[in-house]
Structure formats: structure tokens, C-alpha cells
Amino acid sequence: MSFIKPKFRHPRLPTNALGFTVADYDGAISTLCAGCGHDSISAAIRNACFKSALEPHRIAKVSGIGCSSKMPTYFLGRSHGFNSVHGRMPSVATGASLANRNLTYIGVSGDGDTASIGMGQFIHLIRRNVNMTYIVANNGCYGLTKGQDSATADLGSVSKGGAANPFDGIDLASLAVLQGASFVARSFSGDKDQLEPLIRAAMAHDGFAFIDVVSPCVTFNNHAGSTRSYGSTRDHLDAMPVDFVPVREEIRAEYAEGTSHAVTLHDGSVIHLLKADAGYAADDRTGALTAIRSAQQDRRILTGLLFLDPNSRDLNDTLELASRPLNELGKDELCPGSKMLDSINEGLR
């Protein structure tokens, strides 16, 4: 078993605008099971950060507990990170985002960490519109404790032990749309062509960006009868192709009239919803809920950008906090002195 990834890289690896190669966004070698969907998500995050030319030291990774929450070790080895208590990553992320609004926050969680123990925190993260990307690696089971059904497991999905799940699963994407999230997407770990642009768009979005990623548990939930296996997910996938064009790039791709629907983000970058889904209105909250629901009824897994509010205001703006991070504020700004106090008091008389 290898514990170290060899240092040699392809001598002709492409570089991004910062002169980095994708290898500069690598983390430690994964200790997850071979073939775990989570590793694909790690690679998609790595590729997305590389393609968007983010500086690794301007990114912070936050996570809770679980297979999913081990992931941040396996990408962005030169970024900040905080591995928090089970289900409490939202608190940490909220605090971090308030303290330093200039970092890009990537939260990684799982179906247990979000939909069970962390549900109370997750909901408030949405409500407050904390500026971060929140990725749920959703495999429908508790892989770290040998594959029990999780709260997101589909009704009737057969566990490795052979029992069909008697409960309806929590659909995190619907929940996020319903709760007022400003960016909601769903994807599949085995579809990087879609997942990478979604992550890039989520990181560019000003506010809370939620991506529910179907990520098969190769050890405990990849058998016949499971609705979250590689095979079953591919069979039922209804993917909306997505392209992401960041603000500083020219639009190179050409889309024929009526085949794409462009959504412009706050910072000027553009998400293209492609092909047959051109008619999909990503800014229609009710429409999004209907589309997700109708896909579920047809046993289709609808993936792509489900909802986006381009005019979202994140927590820092809502609370009208300082425009600069705390660590950039000096003593005089943080403690303006008695004269300032006097003038405030004067204003209240």
C-alpha cells in the first residue's frame, strides 16, 4: 500500500494564470477505500481551484466528521483547514467567514454530518447565507460505521445487509431551495465534466452555495438494489450540462441560438446551462422544487444548477460588517478611543 504519492509529475502539465499546475493543488494521498466517490470529488475540487486560478493560501477548507470530512486532507495541501466536531462545521465556517471575509471557504460534509447530527446547524447556515461553498458527499449510508442506511437513503434502497430502507430519504437539495439558499446544485462524483464547473461557479457565487453530490460508497453501497451505486446512478442520471466562464476569460465556446441559457453571477462570471435544458429557469425557486420533485417521481436524478439567486446578499453584507477582515484592522480601528465614543454618545443625545 502506498502512503506517499510520487513527486514526479507530467513534464508538460498545463499551468494556470498564476503559473501553478494542478499538482500545486494536490493534497496527501487518500486513505479512503479504493474507488470511493469522495476521491473524485476531491479531484474535482482540486481541478476547479486550479482552473479558476485561486491562490491556495487564500482558501480555507472546513469539515465535520465522517468519510466525507476526511476529504480536505486529500486536496489543497497548501490551504488552510479546520476539521471540526461532528455536524458543527457550519458554526466554524460562520465564525471564520465573519472574521475574514476575503478567503474562499470550502465546506465538505456528508449525509450523516449534514442531514442527521448537523441538520440544526446546516439550516442556519442557509438562513444566514454565509459566503461559502458547501459540498455534501452523499452516499446514502454510514460508510465509516459499516454502511447503515443514512437519513438521505432512498425509500426502498437495499442495504448491503439485504434490508430495504423503510423511510423516505431527506432530499437536501429540495430542503436548501425551500429554506432560501441562494445557490443550489446537484451533481454526481462520476461526472466531473459537470461537477467541476459547478464547483467553480459555487466558489464565484457571493453567498451560500450548496452542492449535493451523489458519491457512491464503493464498499457498502455499490451493490444491486442500492439506488446510490455507480451503476444505478448512471442509469437514472438526468444531467444538465453546465459550463462556467469566469469573468476574466473570454467567452470561447460558441452556443447556437436557443441552446443555452446564461446566468450571470454577481462578479460578472457566467454559467451556461446547456442543451435541452435551455428552457430551465434557474432563478425560479418554485420551478426548481417542481423540477426536482417530478424527476424524483420518475426515478430520475436531476443534476446541474437547480437554483441561483444572482442578487444574493451574504451574511457580512446583511450585518453591514467591516469591509476588511479582522486581521487587517489595526488597533486604532478596532479601538477608536474616547473621542469616538464621545461623538457616538453625542449623536444619541
Binding site: K5, P6, K7, F8, G37, D39, S40, A43, K192
Partner: peptide, 13 residues
Amino acid sequence: IECDACTDICPTS
């Protein structure tokens, strides 16, 4: 099963 694990780990792409 096209899980991409090999693509993701390959040091030399």
C-alpha cells in the same frame, strides 16, 4: 466501473 479513481491518483496524468 468508471469511478475515476485511477485518473485522480495518477501522478503523471
